[in-house]
Design a binder for these strands. Structure first.
Lengths: 125, 125
DNA sequence: AGGGGTATGTTACAGATGTAGCGAACCTGT
DNA sequence: ACAGGTTCGCTACATCTGTAACATACCCCT
């Protein structure tokens, strides 16, 4: 799994929140802080489809996008990469460190914990 | 502070360990896992000098490089960026999560903790 | 039928990163 | 004085990321 870039993370967060959105909707939700042109938003989404980070569905002629992977799956991957890369750690960080994240409810946190505890990266699936 | 890229982190780790090294020496220490050409190692080091990540000193005609920032300074920055970017967290992660890192002795860990606890990013200094 | 708005695919371009080669200058042993 | 090894500064080039425009095709209203 190619990791999402920072901008791509922003898009993913929106999709995790809202489920499935058209490009226009994604753009609207990102509105304030990102300040991209609509074109930019669309380019990001396309690249994410290529990377397999989001899936594209055609709803009555309109393209609608949804996350291809769960929050926990992506985040656990990011955490693993980070701790290996930066700290040479291969034992996982405790999921509890991320409680407090506005992205995660209790279920998400539990799932993240499970994924972080599993030995070894997830390989392909 | 521009964050070090993954490859640059590898170089920094070597320098934190060994103190100050010539390009040739850095290359030798990285030997196994990285498998770069010597040219690549040198390019990385140069870019890191430009970024202010390492300093260059001239020792009897030979260029010798040393880390420009402490382990704790760099790592705390990385942790902050990561937790903000990925988890929308602005409260800091607990330094204790990184005990166990082969990079950190107790002093490093204490320093890291201090830096992580400080409110707000470090600005310029 | 024509005009206005929207979606989609395609293309562009700069900067960062990974990766590496080239030529000039230099030291050192023969 | 020269060959061989090494350093150093420069250049190159592909890929990824950030950022965006353009040209079509399509739909709806007047």
């Amino acid at each position: 799994m190619q990791p999402p870039s920072p901008s791509e993370m922003a898009v993913l967060k929106t999709l995790w929140n809202e489920g499935a959105l058209s490009a226009r909707e994604v753009h609207a939700r990102l509105g304030g802080p990102q300040d991209w042109s609509y074109s930019t938003t669309r380019t990001l989404i396309s690249r994410m489809v290529e990377k397999g980070l989001v899936s594209r569905r055609d709803s009555h002629g309109l393209a609608v996008f949804a996350p291809a992977l769960s929050k926990a799956a992506v985040l656990s991957g990011m955490v693993r990469r980070f701790s290996a890369q930066v700290f040479d750690l291969d034992a996982p960080l405790p999921a509890s460190a991320f409680a407090g994240s506005p992205l995660l409810d209790d279920d998400d946190l539990a799932e993240l914990e499970t994924l972080l505890e599993q030995e070894g990266g997830e390989e392909e699936n």
